[in-house]
């Protein structure tokens, strides 16, 4: 059976989604239950801890960028609330993470 969310490294503050999760689905993080506010796709990140604006996002035990706003446990962590500390990312519509 597939785990819904996996921790890749003990120091991580995000979990990785290993199966498609639907909005309002119940997920369990550190023994606490949370309700997902939105659908989360395979390979996307969910906050494992509450993360303050400016705090680093840790995956694989290393920083992969920083939060652009406060993020609650169980929230989707992506281009809307974090940015690169190196080079801005872009989507087909726009660049993100630029000042």
């Amino acid at each position: 059976m597939t785990a819904k969310l996996v921790t890749l490294h003990a120091n991580d503050n995000v979990l990785i989604c290993c199966q498609q999760l639907e909005a309002s689905e119940q997920i369990s993080i550190n023994g606490q239950d949370y309700e997902l506010l939105e659908a989360i796709d395979l390979g996307h990140k969910v906050a494992k801890a509450s993360i303050n604006k400016g705090e680093q996002i840790i995956r694989y035990g290393v920083p992969i960028g920083s939060a652009t706003q406060n993020i609650n446990v169980g929230e989707h962590v992506h281009i809307h609330n974090m940015k690169s500390d190196y080079i801005p990312s872009h989507t087909r519509q726009s660049r993100v993470g630029e000042q």
Partner: peptide, 27 residues
């Protein structure tokens, strides 16, 4: 070099697939 070019080695599909930043893709 990539900073001068204005884009990292990061395509829109990477973001759709859950990768958010260059350094996350790099790892």
């Amino acid at each position: 070099y990539y900073t001068k070019m204005g884009y990292g080695s990061f395509a829109p599909g990477n973001a759709e697939g859950g990768l958010t930043t260059q350094e996350e893709k790099s790892m």
